[in-house]
Design a protein around this nucleic acid. Structure first.
Length: 572
RNA sequence: GGACCUGUGGUGCAGUUUGGAGUGCACGCCGGCCUGUCAAGCCGGAGGUCGCGGGUUCAAAUCCCGUCAGGUCCGCCA
């Protein structure tokens, strides 16, 4: 049916009789006996010269046969890959009619996303979407090759899994054969892959769909895809090495560029310098520590557990309303307030509503610590340490973060996360990762005395401010696991009810093991220069969890509900 | 659960602040003309529940209340 793809024709094909198939991108009629039809397939567009094309319409599916020839002198189109040539003496065969598309099939249209999703099959014809999904395929392929080269074996695990309450809300699947009982769709293959380690697979991986019934965001869908991996008899360094190999191979497959080894940052340093556990290292604007400078200040608001400064270069001329907007933003993020100071004058001086409360030493201290020069703006938040860090970290992103498509790619490992992130209402630690995470070997003694200070052997991979994935060395010894459960306030009975099958497996000889999971949607989005993972997913859901194309979710027929033993509660 | 933004012919917008006839722009669509265009060009035409419901008013796309949909974010995402 077809001898060539549209976009792959070129000078060497001149004189060849060809047959191409595709969609009508555009038609230009010049009277009864001359018309140009631009035919598009996934490789590009080729101009076909037709003797009369009055019935040709946009997006019709055509087969066109003819002879490739150089375009006449002066009519080449440098904006088109195939612009030097055209197909002449064309025969046009209509393979399928087409109604006018709901929006133009072109990259530069900005159609409403709900319209795009309702006609996703048309939207995906656009070169940008073709490119994105093909980048995704290249990433998957490179990840798979890299894992196989490292000796990992691909094993599939069940989608119909068992409830393990805690963590993300799970999607439930009613059992027909056992009415009243439910499977759940896995949040991740976490426990399954640990079982595979007990089984001696040594190195497992899977490109796995994960499902979490939590609210959607630009970087979060109900279902998402991870490169999931786990390995036995490994250290943290081994795991970071595996993931680096795979992710950088995938990036190289897309960008053609090699990336130097990935730097590491401790969680503590990341929070202190960037105010987030997923810092975007493409730009500076590090947070400036000012706590000691104000340890005994007269200005009470700055006598706080933590004072953080942020230098905004060249922002000294920002209007009062814009500065007020920053104050509102800081308060919305949880800060008690935000102080702004403009550096002015030849020998820099500070201009701010609170200058009169500061001593000359404090003013010069701020200028020195932040490096502010005349014309710059300094922002200061004084608060509890975590609040000051995160508020300033968010402002740093607000004011400095480049678009995702702007280079370069800056990967960073965040290591030594705390084992517990906070205490719950009853004073019990809440695990930061999951309860199978191995504590840092140096911190076991702190488990009972100062649990929040215990570091874990867990780690995140961050790329340009996106959390690409996380992993940990797992607890494989029942005695350590029992100790963690005790610290978490999980009783033996509760642990057995929730994870009994895993703990049982560990009694039969569990190797030391650890692993990781890379969020492929996010990785592809960054590599494709997209701000939103929906742009790299063929059929995504909207923020309300709907699919405008199929209309899902929908009510189930009464009969189907009856089969499942389900009766709907009245709407409240 | 909450905050904010958006909703106007098929598509993208302007019009909403300060109420006065569905008023306008671009693209697309339909018809005609046109032999080297490529965002082709020229002429003509069709196409509207101003998301939906209620209220205020002599009069509502415009003001008020509610609601639905899409988006961004907070909470949530072990």
């Amino acid at each position: 049916m077809r001898t060539h793809y549209c976009g792959q024709l070129g000078r060497p094909d001149v004189g060849t009789e060809v047959a191409v198939c595709g969609w009508v991108a555009r038609r230009r009629e010049h009277g009864e006996h001359l018309a140009f039809v631009d035919l598009r397939d996934h490789t590009g567009v080729i101009q076909c010269v037709v003797d009369g094309a009055h019935d040709v319409r946009s997006e019709q599916v055509l087969r066109i046969t003819g002879v490739v020839r150089l375009r006449p002198e002066g009519t080449a189109n440098p904006n088109l890959g195939t612009g030097e040539i055209e197909i002449g003496d064309c025969e046009v065969e209509l393979l399928a009619a087409a109604e006018p598309p709901p929006f133009p099939v072109a990259d530069d249209v900005d159609a409403d996303e709900s319209v795009r999703l309702r006609h996703r099959y048309v939207d995906l014809r656009r070169p940008r979407m073709q490119r994105n999904l093909r980048i995704r395929a290249a990433v998957n392929s490179a990840l798979r090759s890299a894992m196989e080269a490292l000796g990992f074996v691909e094993v599939e695990t069940p989608l119909l899994w068992t409830p393990t309450p805690e963590g993300a809300r799970e999607f439930a699947v009613p059992s027909r054969l056992q009415p009243g009982s439910f499977y759940v769709l896995p949040q991740s293959p976490q426990i399954a892959k640990q079982l595979l380690m007990v089984s001696g697979f040594d190195r497992y991986f899977q490109i796995a769909r994960c499902l979490r019934d939590e609210d959607l965001r630009a970087d979060r869908q109900f279902e998402f895809t991870q490169l999931d991996l786990e390995a036995s008899f490994v250290t943290q360094d081994d795991v970071l090495g595996f993931v680096s190999d795979a992710v950088l191979a995938a990036a190289r497959a897309v960008t053609g560029e090699s990336t130097p080894p990935i730097d590491r940052l401790t969680w503590s340093d990341a929070m202190d310098r960037y105010g987030t556990d997923k810092p975007d290292l493409r730009f500076g604007m590090e947070l400036v520590e000012l706590t000691d400078l104000f340890a005994s200040t007269e200005f009470k608001a700055f006598r706080a557990p933590c004072v953080k400064g942020l230098l905004v270069s060249g922002a000294g001329d920002w209007s009062r309303s814009r500065l007020d907007g920053l104050v509102d933003r800081a308060k919305a993020l949880g800060a008690k307030g935000l102080v702004w100071m403009k550096a002015v004058g030849g020998a820099p001086e500070l201009e701010s509503p609170i200058t009169k409360f500061l001593s000359p030493a404090e003013i010069s201290g701020i200028l020195t610590a932040t490096g502010a020069a005349p014309g710059d703006l300094v922002l200061v938040v004084a608060d509890e340490r975590r609040v000051a860090q995160t508020v300033m970290g968010q402002l740093r992103n607000d004011l400095g973060r480049p678009p995702v498509g702007d280079g370069p790619y800056r990967y960073v490992w965040i290591v030594e996360f705390p084992l517990f992130e906070a205490l719950d209402d009853e004073g019990r630690p809440v695990p930061a990762h999951h309860p199978f995470t191995m504590p840092h070997p140096d911190d076991f003694d702190l488990l009972d005395t100062d649990p929040l200070a215990v570091r874990s052997q867990s780690y995140d991979l961050v790329l340009n401010g996106w959390e690409l994935g996380s992993g940990s060395i797992r607890i494989h010894r029942p005695d350590i696991q029992e100790r963690i459960f005790r610290t978490l306030g999980i009783s033996d009975e509760e642990a057995a009810a929730r994870f009994g099958f895993l703990l049982g497996a560990f009694r039969y000889g569990a190797p030391p093991h650890g692993g990781f999971a890379v969020g492929i949607d996010r990785l592809v989005a960054v590599l494709a220069g997209e701000e939103n993972i929906r742009e790299v997913i063929a059929f995504p859901k909207t923020q309300s969890g709907a699919d405008p194309l199929t209309g899902a979710p929908k009510p189930l027929a009464t009969r189907a509900l009856a089969d499942l033993g389900i009766r709907l509660a009245p709407r409240t």
